[in-house]
């Protein structure tokens, strides 16, 4: 394993994308990053810009008005990237999503438009479970290999 591949495992940066929903999963996600479960021990940091992120953490089901934003944020994360869906809404749509009849406002889970690598179901998941999911995401990230393309947007 090269030093850059190892560095990718050692310093995953998260971008937290709240798509919609009740905020329960967001509170738990922040709890997973707070002193009690201090994710910075393993180099995990919350970053403010999707361009700096390695792991896109999505919570909540996606309202139809939010679809372009989700796609755009996903495209802005540079390769290699991993998407971790946290909570029942982000995994399967949960209470808000119906197949038949279709909900007029809610599209459903984000995996209908962007590829999701790790699902962390639960309503809401415990912080331990979220950290576990992020660790699974890191392992997938390690398997993806490095990319040094220059992308023009």
């Amino acid at each position: 394993m090269g030093i850059i591949d190892r560095a990718r495992v050692y310093s995953p940066w998260l971008y937290h994308l709240h798509c919609g929903g009740c905020n329960g999963c967001d509170i738990e996600t922040l709890a997973a990053l707070a002193p009690r479960f201090d994710a910075e021990r393993f180099g995990i940091q919350l970053v403010a810009s999707p361009r700096h992120a390695d792991i896109l953490v999505t919570t909540g089901c996606v309202p139809k008005q939010f679809i372009p934003m989700v796609k755009r944020v996903y495209e802005q994360v540079p390769e290699p990237k991993v998407v971790v869906a946290i909570g029942g809404c982000a995994c399967g749509g949960s209470l808000f999503y119906e197949e038949e009849p279709e909900n007029y406002a809610i599209l459903g889970s984000p995996d209908l438009m962007i590829p999701v690598d790790v699902y962390v179901p639960g309503c809401a998941p415990k912080p331990e479970q979220i950290i576990n999911g992020i660790v699974q995401g890191i392992l997938k990230l390690a398997a993806k290999g490095s990319s040094r393309k220059r992308r023009e947007v």
């Binding site: 850059i4 560095a7 990718r8 393993f42 180099g43 540079p78 393309k149 220059r150 992308r151 023009e152």
Partner: peptide, 20 residues
């Protein structure tokens, strides 16, 4: 993780560069 800031930099070297 004493070299954590260095790992951050090295990791960024192995990533895509996006230019608007």
């Amino acid at each position: 993780r004493i070299w954590q800031p260095l790992y951050d930099i090295l990791k960024l070297f192995g990533k895509d560069t996006i230019i608007t």
